[in-house]
């Protein structure tokens, strides 16, 4: 379920472009995750062998994980793989479940937009009040700002998904 898929079923160029964008964005998040893994290794071996852990390792992990995980969200939506319960709707005619799915993706888009809005406000608030992390004093608005594009991308992917459901071109990925 993790292998890459062709994007041929996406008819419009914008669909393919968005799919590629989500995929590249997730890869970037993956690179951040690998970097965190390495940082964690350096920290534990530094601590064990030289009593010198990476300064502020926990904070780095927290900020990095938030940025990486947020970057993963759009790809999963683009592929239509977010968890849902379909045991009750399996018997419905295809056209009905298509419109239900369109509704689901619309809700997801709405949720993503609301989270973008509120996280954006939080970012501004953090800037104004000068929130920083405990040991490294990294301003918190920076990681907050870095998860915003992911949330926007999630909303865009969800809107596209919803449109694809309405126009009956979900492709092989859905469900």
């Amino acid at each position: 379920m993790s292998l890459e898929r062709s994007t041929d079923w996406l008819r419009g160029w914008y669909g393919r472009a968005l799919y590629q964008l989500c995929q590249s964005w997730a890869l970037l998040g993956g690179v951040v995750l690998v970097a965190l893994m390495v940082m964690s290794l350096v920290s534990i071996f530094g601590r064990k062998l030289f009593s010198a852990p990476v300064h502020g390792d926990i904070e780095l992990m927290e900020m990095g994980a938030a940025v990486a995980i947020a970057a993963f969200l759009p790809l999963c939506e683009m592929r239509g793989h977010h968890i849902k319960v379909d045991a009750f709707t399996a018997w419905l005619p295809r056209v009905v479940s298509r419109y239900l799915d369109a509704l689901a993706h619309l809700c997801c888009a709405l949720a993503a937009l609301i989270l973008t809005w509120r996280t954006g406000l939080q970012m501004l608030d953090s800037r104004e009040y000068g929130d920083v992390t405990t040991l490294l004093s990294v301003p918190l608005w920076i990681p907050l700002l870095m998860i915003l594009p992911s949330l926007v991308l999630l909303a865009m992917a969800a809107l596209l998904r919803s449109y694809l459901c309405v126009t009956d071109q979900q492709g092989r990925d859905e469900g």
């Binding site: 379920m1 993790s2 890459e4 993956g30 995980i69 993963f72 790809l75 999963c76």
Partner: peptide, 16 residues
């Protein structure tokens, strides 16, 4: 690349 994309998708499912 495939590992990272697979990780991305599974992690995203859990975190949403």
């Amino acid at each position: 690349r495939a590992c990272l994309l697979g990780t991305a998708e599974t992690t995203a499912m859990i975190f949403l």
